[in-house]
Amino acid sequence: MTDRRPQSISGRYFEPNKSKSRPALLSRSGSRLEIAVDGGLVGAYSSDPEISSRVGNIPRRVTLSDGSVFETSDNDGLELFFGLDRHLSTRFFALEKRSRWTALVAVVCIALVFCVYRYGMPVAARFAASATPAIVSSAIDRGALETLDKVLFEASVLEVHEQERIDALFRTIIDTAGKDTNDFRLLFRDGGAIGANAFALPGGSIVITDQIVQLTENDDELAGVLGHELAHVVEQHSLQQIYRAVGWVIVAGLVAGDSGQLVEEAVAQVGALQSLSYSRAFETSADIYSARLMHTLGRNPLAFIDLLERVTLECGPSCDHSSLLSSHPGTVDRRRDIEQLEFVDP
């Protein structure tokens, strides 16, 4: 084996910090490395040099103890000369050149990326959401409410006894769902610019606007909406949304970060679309949760879809179809999903 190790390597010699190079020969004399230029010795070194690692076939730098550099394009010769060919990393990265092996790696990578995207991220987000301490989610509630109250909402003008009646209805729903009423609170606000609406914050605060209460024709409708919002809290949908958004930013940054701008643009758009489709899946899941609760309560599981239809009528024709671009499914799809449940008689 040793006889195929070269006695010397040819390359270029740079004095420390200088850009001028001269053709040179690197050889060994005893335990010392020697560099010769035009047959004359220019340096002899007894301490180990720093050798840059191999990437493809780019020139290798051998940095000597005085800061001078020997550079060579003879990658294989250099590895044999210094005995680097036996190193584990050299052998590992040599696999980069085997096309059959890289093809296999490519297949594994595609499978892994798909799994991370399809399963890993949702699972990680669900885990992170369930690991989030209650104190953090209630802090999110406080912060969000404070902001919304300043910029959007007015105090509710609903009669107190009306508020109490709806609150009692809400408590019945929580009980039916088998949850603790202390973990949730129902808040009434004048919706201002957002009009008829209801939403849930991760810490258990559920806000309904006066406008949506006024649109309801019976308690079944209101109960359905409350059940839907309850589901968002119980299933931690908004926390998962937050974590998925963060996760996407990080993954996209790490995987596509070093590419041209067009790729980053495309990845960002895919991320936005993806988060909308996540959000539609959450809405559907909340609808089904609510429909089951309404069924148990003996109320009409489809009633709140009627209410939603009235809300969308107010917002115009663009609201009633779900598409790639909407955060909520259209009411047509939502009704169909609920009608598919075994206990619902369309």
Binding site: G56, R98, S99, T102, V108, I250, V255
Partner: peptide, 23 residues
């Protein structure tokens, strides 16, 4: 002086190790 097929090997190994080590 680089070429796509040589870089492909480097890139795909980078990608695999990046995923396996969680970034």
């Amino acid at each position: 002086e680089g070429n796509a097929s040589e870089y492909f090997g480097i890139w795909i190994v980078n990608l695999l190790l990046s995923i396996v080590t969680l970034g």
